[in-house]
Design a protein around this nucleic acid. Sequence first.
DNA 1: AGTAGGATAATCT
DNA 2: GATTATCCTACTG
Length: 211
Amino acid sequence: MTPTQLRDLLHQRADQVAPHLLGCLVTANGVTIRLTEVEAYAGEGGDPASHAHRGPTRRNASQFGPSGHAYVYFTYGMHYCLNVVCRPEGIGGGVLLRAGEVVDGIDLARERRPGASDRDLARGPARLTVALAVDRSCDGVALFSGGPISLRPGEPPAAAVRTGPRTGVSTAADTPWRFWLDADPTVSPYRKHAPKNRSRTRRGHASESKA
DNA sequence: AGTAGGATAATCT
DNA sequence: GATTATCCTACTG
C-alpha cells in the first residue's frame, strides 16, 4: 500500500477503512507506533455508539471535516483518544486508534508512561495518546502534511485480522467493529461497558431527616 | 485469573 | 444531574 492509496482509502466508511490501518505507522512528537488494534465508528444514522451519531457539535466538529485529519476527544475527565477521520468532508465517521507497538522513540515513550512495561506503553487508546503526547491541541490536524501527527503505511501484517464487538460501548454493543491483529501482545484486553451505580438517593437517606 | 471502586470534567438530558 | 469510545489500584481466588 502506498501513501496515496492509504489517503484515498479514507474516503470510505470507517468499518471498511479500519482493517487496513492495522500495521500502519503513526508518528507524533518523536514516537512511532505500529497499529495493532482499532475500532470503527460511523457517522450520522445507524451507529448510536458514534460521537457523530447526532450530527456535528463543537466537540466532534473535526469528525465532519476532511478525511485524513485527526479527531481527538477528551473523556472521563482525564483521557484523550485519537481517531483518524474517514469519509469526505461533511460526513461524520472515524477510526479510533486503540493500541499498538512502539517501534521508534521508545525511550521517550517510557518517560511519558512511567512504570509501564514496554508491552503496555500504547496498549489502550488513552495510553496510546500519552505515549504519543497527543492532546486536544492536535484535534483536526492533517495527518499527511508534515504536521505534529503523521500516518503512513507499514509492512503488511503477518498476523490475521480478527474482529469482534467494540470495547466499553454502552450502545450497539454487538456491532463487530473492533479490529485487531491475532495473538499480538500489544492488543488491549476486551472489556464490556460497566454501568456505574451512582444513585444513592435511593435508600435510607431521605427518611433520616427527622432527629 | 477476574472483579470492584474511584478518579475527574466535558457533554448531554 | 447522569453519562462516558478509560485507566489505575486493591482486593479475592
